[in-house]
């Protein structure tokens, strides 16, 4: 069959909401886009463990420590599912991780911001996991089967994280003066970076059109960002806190909140590596990998020895 026919069948499947599976024919660019996006998502889960991990040893109560440990561990699990989804496209976990370490692959820029106080942990759960969910709920319907299925599992846990984050801020918002200040300060620092998580404006975004046609992405950056702003603007009232944007205002005509201009210079700067923690985050991942080399080698050598032993016994 000529390639055009394959392409036609492929696009028909997509148009009819039939998932693309690993063994199906797919255009090279579709495979590459999915590898790029899924691996970037996997790396984000893993790098995302670092800013929150920063507070595990200092969590203010035993209960909060257990919740935080479980949350960060969930993120590791998400990374694991996503690396596996990536492998179904023909790229090994090791290769994928090498691309992160070499700087070829990206991860979500939000994790290049520091967690300065305990309130940042609540703010991350509420705003960062919250923003991630908007994107991920959409991705449960993405056209590549293994990615969509991974997202279904992940989304359940992410919405739990968001609720826990909000609840932890709610406690601060009802606490002492210092706690309320800590809470407001964290919201002030995480709000704009969280909005940047949805990526550039639609008018500036390069990957969107093809991604929409292939139903990898099903909503535009601006749509998702607007949904997020509408949701959070309501929730922040419950906390009795404010969002750091004086242009934030309900627009009766649009039935959405209007908001101020995002600092795109900052966004691109962080993407390019100049965020407050880019170097430390990548270095922490590389160190973990390098210090683990002897462990992985030993595990492989031991598995090999066991295999040859059982072969001998079988012979």
């Amino acid at each position: 069959m000529p390639v055009q026919n394959f392409e036609k069948i492929f696009q028909e499947k997509i148009d009819n909401e039939i998932k693309i599976e690993p063994k199906d024919w797919m255009p090279d660019a579709y495979r590459k886009t999915n590898i790029r996006q899924i691996s970037q998502h996997a790396h984000s889960e893993i790098v995302g463990m670092l800013p929150e991990g920063n507070w595990i040893s200092r969590a203010p109560s035993l209960k909060r420590k257990a919740i935080l440990l479980a949350k960060v561990q969930d993120e590791a699990g998400h990374g694991l599912y996503l690396y596996s989804a990536c492998e179904t496209l023909g790229i090994s976990r090791e290769e994928t991780i090498n691309d992160l370490h070499s700087g070829k692959a990206k991860y979500s820029s939000i994790f290049n911001y520091p967690t300065l106080t305990w309130a940042d942990i609540g703010a991350i759960g509420w705003l960062v996991d919250g923003a991630a969910i908007m994107n991920q709920v959409m991705l449960t319907r993405t056209s590549y089967g293994p990615y969509a299925r991974a997202m279904v599992r992940i989304c359940k846990e992410e919405s739990f994280h968001q609720r826990q984050g909000f609840e932890s801020l709610l406690v601060l918002s009802k606490g002492t003066k210092e706690q309320r200040e800590m809470c407001q300060d964290a919201i002030n620092r995480w709000w704009w970076p969280a909005l940047m998580m949805f990526g550039p404006k639609d008018s500036e975004s390069t990957n969107s059109d093809q991604g929409m046609k292939w139903k990898i992405k099903r909503k535009s950056n601006d749509e998702l960002r607007q949904n997020f702003i509408d949701m959070i603007t309501e929730q922040v009232k419950v906390l009795g806190m404010t969002l750091p944007d004086d242009k934030l205002k309900w627009n009766e005509e649009r039935k959405h909140y209007d908001f101020g201009e995002i600092n795109w210079d900052e966004f691109w700067n962080v993407v390019k590596g100049n965020g407050p923690c880019n170097k430390q985050r990548l270095q922490a991942r590389k160190d973990a990998w390098d210090k683990g080399t002897w462990v992985r080698e030993a595990a492989a050598a031991h598995a090999e020895k066991r295999k040859s032993k059982s072969n001998q016994q079988a012979a």
């Binding site: 463990m49 561990q73 595990a299």
Partner: peptide, 12 residues
């Protein structure tokens, strides 16, 4: 818990 995020293998 100091290992969390720094382990030698993701599963571990």
């Amino acid at each position: 818990s100091e290992w969390c995020g720094h382990g030698p293998i993701l599963e571990q």
